[in-house]
Design a protein around this nucleic acid. Structure first.
Lengths: 192, 192, 192, 192
DNA sequence: TATGAATGAGCGTTCATTCAT
DNA sequence: TATGAATGAACGCTCATTCAT
């Protein structure tokens, strides 16, 4: 059984790598700096991870999982789907705005050759909660009859883009902007 | 005035860098390899570009410009806006599918710390054709009254995401899928 | 007095190091791997040996001693010297062929800078049985009157080389080949 | 065509590696030290050699070739074979004594796992002059009818061992000792 | 302009050794 | 004794960049 110290070290390494990559990118985040920021020796990282690449991939899976879990944190299946979707959509945006480093890391990873080093099956599992959420709503004719994969892409892609806009500092979104964004998405995907 | 040879060399360098980065990412695309693929000496690259970063940024601007120009290639201002938008939306997707390397490069760049090294003003200029296109349609009440920046983010983000789905090989989109995607977007953004 | 467990551990460490070095050489035989193969913790090795170098040197001395003892296992001082020498010479070759790992280790060590870290006096003691064996035969005029050290070098060197030929797999020696090898050596060193 | 400077650099690297390995062994001869001794930058070595291992192997082949060529430098095919062999045998010893670093390097290499990384065919070619020299003498019935490979092993092995004795400083060989060594070998291999 | 050998700082990683448990 | 996580110096190697030609 792992003790607290173990968790501390591994988590410190994850945190340091996240910090660095989100700010400087993959290739300006040397292991030596990760070690320094995590307050461990360089060699220690290699007790927990085989290589830099493996560390980065493990970090991606961990953060992606956490992120997706959080999207459904407030999901109330008793509510009408529209409400549930609204909560989900706004949560996507709010989570990212509250955790910009994690968002930047995830986007950077997902748009790099790293992504293709992770087996598709594993990626599917990560995404499956979103996929299931929307697929069911297609099935119950609450949502437009579009292939669920396209639906997922549409919804997450538009949200990502809006998040980037906000995080770029170029545009400060008010809550009514968020509401507008939600409706824009909803009116696109809902059953006519 | 630049002669043909100059163009050839510079273009060969651009092409080689595009090839490498789209496949292997920024790191794993050494200048020596670029030189080899471009069939020039390593030093030659530095006659055209101050540094690797500058070359990469110049490539981004060049490709982004070309890409955006192409989106309006078939724009017919005489047509109803819905038709024009349909053409624009499908063109976004088709251009990317026809030029996957360019798409991958642009996405990788835009989701990396490189992006923030380019002045915001310069980026705005690049995006302005899309911005103007949609802003006018908001003004003329064809589109929902949303801040144009959000609108641009929504439209391009959803398209990007759908393109990645297609390019990933995970899902083969038919032309009716594309049509569905267009309607999904359109129904979201059109004036109710 | 050492208990069985001690012997087991120490021997397991020796065995693991032998295995690794004979196959991969001194470098490419990390202590962590020795520990793994010996089924002990890395730190445990340092209870038995001060350092990697000391372990390697101790292994050399141990194996060299064992090896030389074995050469005289069947020595029958009642027999004519020629017979005794024949037995000795063939035993050198057979021992090595039966224990190739030990042979490779010993040769690798003896041809490396490690050898010179062992005091010459200690090495002399190890070799002395062979030295005495041949020196006496020079004294009794059975062997050519050559400085015994040269004699030892000649005999052991030719045997080593023949062993390597056999172990390389390049040449399969029959028993008549071995007999020929013995005669070649014998005719060289015997008193005319 | 390679200019002098090229030769100088490559040779300086070879020389530095030889110097270091002969004295400290493979794993205490870091590339950084080679670079320093050769008076080139660390990276420069990698223009000439793909890796440390490749450099070491190339050095082996180069020195082995040179060494074997030298053995026949004074060969006079007009002379009786016994004289030719005497010249060859003493040359083996003298060459090594004059070039102890090269001898140590070659022995260290030949008794390490490095040797097996060189294709057997390539090694055969290197040895073939010695092989041919002795094989012919077996054929013409000047030498004992032993498989030539065994003969080569016997002759070179005994010589190597005698060289090590001399270089160890443990025993100073006079020219009459050398003469004795030659006769010991010759009487062993000559046709009775 | 064009070359490509040369540079050397800096990278990812290894591994002999230590020490708190 | 025995453990094995932790250390950090040192390794082999890469690669953006320079400069003599």
């Amino acid at each position: 059984m792992k003790n607290n110290k173990d968790f501390d070290k591994k988590d410190a390494i994850f945190k340091a790598m996240l910090e660095l990559i989100s700010k400087h990118g993959f290739h300006s985040s040397p292991m030596s700096e990760v070690a320094k920021q995590a307050d461990v020796a360089a060699g220690t990282i290699y007790h927990y991870f085989k290589s830099k690449d493996e560390l980065i991939c493990a970090l991606y899976v961990k953060l992606k999982q956490k992120n997706i879990e959080n999207l459904f944190k407030n999901d109330d299946t008793a509510k009408p789907f529209k409400d549930r979707f609204r909560s989900f959509y706004l949560q996507m945006i709010n989570e990212a705005i509250k955790n910009p480093k994690e968002f930047y890391f995830l986007e950077q990873f997902a748009n790099s050759p790293y992504l293709s080093t992770i087996p598709k099956a594993e990626l599917s599992v990560l995404d499956s909660p979103i996929y299931d959420f929307l697929r069911k709503a297609v099935f119950t004719q609450v949502l437009r009859d579009i292939p669920p994969k396209i639906l997922v892409a549409f919804v997450t892609g538009s949200a990502s883009s809006i998040i980037k806009l906000q995080l770029s500092g170029e545009f400060q979104m008010t809550s009514s902007d968020l509401e507008l964004a939600f409706f824009t998405c909803w009116d696109g995907i809902k059953k006519a």
